[in-house]
Write a protein that binds this DNA or RNA. Structure first.
Lengths: 110, 110
DNA sequence: ATGTTGTTCAACCAAGCGGTTGACAATCGG
DNA sequence: CCGATTGTCAACCGCTTGGTTGAACAACAT
């Protein structure tokens, strides 16, 4: 499989635990333990989630004594948002109730 | 599990086949067969992907003769983008190289 | 009536995921 | 030194995923 960047980013974001961890990281760097603590879950479980975020390029780790300090790396979020913005014109048209306009445009192409 | 809206949306987007189908739908309504055709894959396989998109609220189907015509429903994409935009200030700060500013702000809270 | 097209459904398979436990290692505080 | 903290890794479990095949069915074509 191709496994491109958007795949792993969206996959990482498709879990509420991981989105919660990211939100937590937005408030400042955290250790793996601190990231897992809000979600009743073992250390190993939290560690796995952090690894998913790390391989998605969303967090970076550095050792500090016996702790592993995680930092938010938001670049992949930006790429994901860039991709989503492609559809901006679509939903704005829909929400403005201008479906008929889209239909007309499509009919021209058929 | 909670299975909220963002979960299913991001998971639906985490597959290049489904993103391709969406891109195709952006050009106009398509039948299930037309959506699957670009990806060497059986009918049943394409049908499953379409179902994932449908349960994510990203496509709507209507019967037209023996075909199933799919329409893009972009609202969930908008919600996903809204969620991603929360981090806009983070990556702009990072890209501007103003990490020190973030650190300073965090230090005030500690 | 027969066949072809478009599609779903059920069953299956291999791989992956979210989570646990248990063993291990490194680091810090007495 | 000892013991508690903070992790990692490997193995396992049950469930989901992406994909297939084969059967079925409805709708059109002949």
């Amino acid at each position: 499989m191709v496994e491109n960047r958007l795949d792993v980013t969206f996959r990482a974001l498709a879990d509420p635990t991981r989105r919660g961890m990211l939100a937590n990281l937005a408030l400042g760097d955290k250790s793996v333990g601190e990231l897992g603590e809000p979600f009743r879950m073992t250390f190993a479980g939290a560690s796995k989630h952090v690894k998913v975020l790390e391989t998605a390029g969303l967090v970076e780790r550095r050792k500090a004594g016996r702790k592993q300090i995680c930092t938010l790396r938001p670049e992949p979020l930006r790429e994901a948002e860039d991709w989503l913005r492609q559809w901006e014109k679509f939903w704005s048209v829909h929400l403005d109730g201008l479906q008929a306009l889209v239909d007309a445009e499509r009919d021209e192409h058929e």
